[in-house]
Design a protein around this nucleic acid. Structure first.
Lengths: 238, 238
DNA sequence: ACCCTGGACCTGTATAGACAACTCGGCCCT
DNA sequence: AGGGCCGAGTTGTCTATACAGGTCCAGGGT
């Protein structure tokens, strides 16, 4: 049993800034406290404040101008093609009915590989769910998800036939960023059966990690039948 | 008149590592000099070496394990679907050699389906190419492309072992926007053979249409082996 | 044979101090 | 009024030092 580690100070400084942006206290284009101000008000060294601001600038949250100051970046204009979308919204937007079947909802112990993906220690408790999303009566997505209960507590107490995991998570753990990897696979039989696939049909597999407060909130494997699902993306330079 | 600024030392350290990776002196999984070693051999402070290694780790180039060491990350094949990227650049950015094999390069007559995709009349002449892109000796993409000679003339006169179709096109026809559709498929045997696939492996298929001056400049089907290629995307909400 | 305990080495973080380059505004001199 | 200079404030970088915690191995004790 160990006490929860105090977060690193540069992470505290990052949160300090991010919360002020999220809460509206700092708006796009506005000036952020300088390193020296943070040094005084937060009682950290200038190097620590520097690291926090520098990393936020690298993430595109802030813009720094030597000799002038640090400012909240203007909002991104271009939505990324793989925005964190909710499959339920997609389905409803097409005028179809969205249904969910819950296959599993329980607490599990993190394997080594899983622990690495989630940024926790092997053996740590993770909330697990396995769902199928239907469009009318056609399965469109199998969602296998692991949630870090330290970041998003109460996951297991939901009724996911009324609220999707995604909807719950964005309410409980403010979404900071998301990471997607898209692969083409022929999944194992367990998944094929849930998607009612025939033969060796290919699937789009989206590995999604969402981050909240600098930590992994949840890890999801989203399987879509290759014959019924595709990703679309348009890009316009400027 | 100012002398060229010497690059920052932490950038020099990053280059030092990157060059060794690109040159093959450091391979995936191998150990990178520790911070203390860099401190001695490059005569920098440990904090400077730390910053270099930390940033390379943040970029995914290195993997750091506290108490153990720093290692070259396993090379992941990544691309951002949004950017109209050149597979040749991707491969070279990883320090591998890019090669192309040209299977076909000729003028064809547009079928009805193809004509619709290209925004021309059925029977119109289109320039056609079928290439395989190799990373070292591993096939990474089969590119089947149709080009509208009205929009981008001279396509067939290129030697695509020296310039990629993409490079030629952006020079001849200014890129206005691009449209992508990502699918998972098990491709026909013709494609499987070119990719040296075994059995019924899945492929990521990217259907790309590029527009220039309001018209379709080219239509490309890009096949990637599912086991060796994935798309990565990060997104930040707001 | 097993355990376990140091010690060496590593990354991760934090601090204080220093110098450079840049921006901007105000002040002084002409 | 105009022009130039200087100083305050800012980011950008570099160094030396320190401590904490993780990993791994060898060596010693049981």
């Amino acid at each position: 049993m160990s006490l929860p580690q105090a977060a690193a100070r540069y992470l505290q400084v990052k949160d300090f800034i991010l919360e002020r942006i999220a809460g509206g206290a700092l708006r796009a284009g506005e000036r952020v406290p300088s390193e020296n101000e943070l040094t005084r008000t937060l009682t950290v060294s200038r190097m620590t404040a520097n690291r926090a601001l520098r990393e936020l600038a690298a993430d595109g949250v802030l813009v720094r101008v030597a000799g002038v100051g640090t400012f909240v970046a203007e909002q991104r204009v271009h939505a990324h093609p793989l925005e964190v979308r909710n499959i339920a919204d997609e389905i409803r937007a097409r005028g179809r009915q969205h249904r969910v079947r819950v296959h599993a909802l329980e607490s599990v112990s993190a394997s080594r590989e899983l622990a690495e993906r989630c940024g926790v220690k092997p053996g740590a408790a993770l909330d697990y769910s396995l769902l199928t999303h239907f469009e009318d009566s056609t399965p469109l997505q199998v969602e296998e998800r692991y949630v870090n209960p330290q970041v998003a507590p109460g996951y297991l107490r939901n009724d996911f036939s009324h609220i999707t995991p995604h909807e719950f998570l964005i309410r409980v753990a403010p979404l900071q960023r998301a990471e997607h990897i898209v692969r083409a696979v022929v999944p194992e039989r367990r998944i094929r059966r849930l998607l009612k696939l025939e033969g060796d049909e290919a699937c789009l597999l989206i590995l999604r990690r969402t981050f909240s407060r600098g930590r992994v909130a949840s890890v999801a494997d989203l399987y879509h039948p290759g014959s019924r699902y595709e990703l679309a993306a348009n890009s316009q330079p400027r």
